[in-house]
C-alpha cells in the first residue's frame, strides 16, 4: 500500500499543505518583529554616520529609536530639489520607508531622495547635518550607506558604509570605522564651487592628502572605485536640493 501511486500522491499533498501552512504561519507571525528589526537596523545606520559607534552599540534598541525620534527629522525630495510628500497614488511618503534599492534601479530623474536632518540639540532649530542615503556597486555586489553633510553643505560630518559581498579583510573594510573615519571633515565642493565629491585613492599610506581625497585600501582598489562612484552619483543627485537650501527656496527644517 505504501508503494502505490495513490498513496504517494496523497502523502505528498498532505505534506505540502502542512509544510506550506506552517511556513506561512511563521512568516505572518514573525513579520512585525522582522519589520521592527529592519527599522532599527536602518535607523542605527542613519545615526551611526553622525554618532560615535561604540556609544551607539552600547545603547538598547528602544534608546536608539528614541534618540532617532528626538534628533532626526526626515523629508523626501526629488531630482530637482523640491520636497515630495505624496506619491503618484496620492499616499503619504515617509522618508524611512523609501526603498533606496528600488529607487536606485530607476532613472536618476525619477527617483525619490530621502533626507534625514540631524539636530545635535533636539530643541534647537538648527540642522547640524543632512544625512543622505547612497547606493552603488562594489566589486562583487551592492554597496550602500549614508553620507552626512554638515549644514555648510560642503563638509562631510561622517559616513557609514555597508556591503553585501565585498572581500573580507579587503573591500569589506569599507564597513569599518577605521575607513569611514577618513571621510570626516573632507569637502565635496572645490573652490570654484563645482561638485567634485571625495575620492578614495589607489594604494594605502598616502601623505599630503587633499580635502577631496581619502587614503585608499590596499588590495581593494575596485571596491574603492565603487565607493567613489556611489558618492559622486548620489551627491550630484542631491545638488539641486543643496542649491535650493542655500537660496532658502526650501526650508532647512
Amino acid at each position: 500500500m505504501r508503494q502505490s501511486n495513490a498513496y504517494i500522491i496523497i502523502f505528498t499533498a498532505v505534506m505540502t499543505v502542512i509544510v506550506g501552512g506552517l511556513l506561512s504561519l511563521a512568516s505572518q507571525g514573525l513579520a512585525p518583529a522582522q519589520k521592527k528589526s529592519i527599522e532599527l537596523d536602518t535607523k542605527t545606520q542613519i545615526l551611526s554616520s553622525v554618532t560615535d559607534r561604540e556609544k551607539l552599540s552600547a545603547m538598547k534598541p528602544n534608546e536608539i529609536l528614541e534618540m532617532y525620534d528626538e534628533h532626526i527629522k526626515s523629508t523626501v525630495v526629488d531630482y530637482s530639489g523640491n520636497e515630495v510628500t505624496k506619491d503618484e497614488k496620492g499616499a503619504d511618503i515617509q522618508a524611512e520607508n523609501v526603498d533606496v534599492l528600488k529607487n536606485y534601479k530607476k532613472k536618476p530623474e525619477d527617483r525619490l531622495y530621502p533626507v534625514f536632518k540631524y539636530r545635535k540639540d533636539p530643541s534647537s532649530k538648527e540642522v547640524y547635518a543632512y544625512i543622505l542615503p547612497i547606493y552603488g556597486s562594489g566589486l562583487w555586489d551592492k554597496i550602500w550607506g549614508f553620507a552626512a553633510i554638515e549644514n555648510d553643505l560642503n563638509t562631510i560630518a561622517g559616513v557609514s558604509f555597508d556591503h553585501k559581498g565585498e572581500t573580507p579583510g579587503l573591500g569589506a573594510r569599507i564597513a569599518t570605522p577605521q575607513i569611514q573615519q577618513r571621510y570626516v571633515g573632507k569637502k565635496i565642493f572645490n573652490e570654484q564651487g563645482n561638485l567634485v565629491s571625495v575620492s578614495m585613492l589607489k594604494g594605502e599610506g598616502h601623505t599630503n592628502i587633499s580635502d577631496h581625497e581619502v587614503d585608499g585600501m590596499s588590495g581593494a582598489t575596485l571596491t574603492g572605485k565603487g565607493v567613489n562612484a556611489m558618492l559622486k552619483n548620489y551627491l550630484s543627485c542631491y545638488k539641486a536640493y543643496f542649491e535650493k537650501l542655500n537660496s532658502g527656496e526650501v526650508a532647512n527644517l
Binding site: 505534506m15 505540502t16 506552517l22 511556513l23 511563521a26 514573525l30 518583529a33 529592519i38
Partner: peptide
C-alpha cells in the same frame, strides 16, 4: 522538505530577533 522547512523557520526567527 522537512529540512527546508526547519531551515526556513530558523532563518525567519533569526531575521526577527537577531537581525
Amino acid at each position: 522538505a522537512v529540512i527546508a522547512t526547519l531551515v526556513t523557520l530558523v532563518s525567519e526567527v533569526l531575521k526577527a530577533y537577531s537581525y
